[in-house]
Structure formats: C-alpha cells, structure tokens
Amino acid sequence: MIDYLTLFGTGPDGWGDDLAVGAAVTIAVALGGFFLGAIFGSLVAWAKIAGNAPLRLLGVGYTTILRGIPDLLVIYLFYFGGSAVLAAIAGLFGHQGFIGLPSFAVGAVAIGVVSAAYQAEVFRASFNALSKGEIEAAHAAGMHKTLMFRRIIVPQMLRHAIPGLGNVWLLVVKESALVSVTGLAELMRTTQLAAGSTRLPFDFYLAGALIYLAITFISTMLFAHSEKRSRRGFSEAIR
C-alpha cells in the first residue's frame, strides 16, 4: 500500500509542499493575467464604445480574433515569439542562439491578452446596462467627464460586471494550466513532475484536479459574496 501521508506530506519524499507552492504560483500568474486583462480589456471596451470607426474596428477585430483562436496557440506565440524578438535584439549585439523568456511574465501576459478579449465584452455589457437617467443626473449636477467617469460610471459598471468578471476569473484559473507548456512550475507542471518521478500519475493528477477544484470553488464563493454585497440597497423586483 502506498503511504499517502509521506507522499503528500512536506518531508523530503513528500510532494505536499511542492504542490502548495505550485498552487500559489498558479494563483499568482492567474491574478497577474487577470489584472493585465482588466487593463487591456477596459481599453478595448473603450475603443468599442467610444472610439471612432477605425478604433471600433480594431476593438471588434481584437475580441473576434482572440476569442476564436486556441489559448494554447497564443501562449506559444508569446513564448516563442517573445524569445525570437529577444534573440534578434541580442543578435545585434553579437549573441547567438535561443534565449528563454521568464515564463511567469510570458504566462501572465498571454493570459492577460486572452482574458482582455473576454473582459472587454463584460465591460461593454455592463456599460450598456448603466441607466441613462443616472448619467443625465450627473450631467445635471454639473459633473464633467472625468468626475462622472470616476464617481458614477465606474462604480455602477463594476456592480454590473461582477458576475461576468467572476466567470472570466474561473476561465483564467483554468487557462493558467496551459502555461505549464512553457515550463513554469505552477500547479499543473508540478503535478506533472510529481506524477513522473513517483510513477503514480493517477494519484497526482487527481490531487492536482482537486486543488484546482478547491481554488475554483473558493473563488465562486468569494464572487457570490461580493455580488451579494454589491447589491446592498438595490431592491430586487418583487416576484
């Protein structure tokens, strides 16, 4: 019988601590990608809402292309493409050969670029959900554009956006497993290493899956809580 306490413990033969570190890296790279995606995504949403014709077209193109291409391909593009660019620059200074990029940064940027396409749609939908009356009221109160954006539009939009952002966050956590192809020692990659070196692939992939489930479950709880909190003071329609 396999000694699971040793196997998943923190001792020299245990993988428990490695898996915990892997899970932390997964959360870190997902958070990094999610926040980068929020920044890119709001820019894309802005281009689609308020931009002129070419900007709008750019925004539509961005969301269409990145939602239509596999995430894995985008990660390959950033990992190998980034290295190629770096190698070309290094070539100017006489360096030859392949240069590996920091896989954490590459992973976060790739996740950010993909999730931006989804977040842009969330932001756009929540902007459209703003009630006209509130914006008119802000105008009537004499607010200028930036003040209105900060005081009225952003807080209201965030309230509408929470459920959508929750979905994108879950996508991002699951997508972060693909970053393992670049060799970043996040949860998936650590699980692979453990599965290989212990020759117990089933136990370790199952453990990995359970840790991912725990992360997504806790995330769902947190988002449900913040959604409820954001609805304080807004009465639901009586059914």
């Binding site: 497993a177 699980t191 692979q192 692939p201 089933f202 992939y205 990995g208 899956a209 991912y212």
Partner: peptide
C-alpha cells in the same frame, strides 16, 4: 467545469496508465 481540461486529459491518458 471546475478543473482545467488539460488536467482531465492527463488524468485519463497518463493517469489511467497506473492501472
């Protein structure tokens, strides 16, 4: 729905090799 598809693929392809 809560775990990455990559883990599911590996669990079936590599994981079941254990048995």
């Amino acid at each position: 729905r809560g775990s990455p598809m990559l883990v599911q693929i590996f669990l079936i392809y590599y994981g079941l090799g254990q048995f």
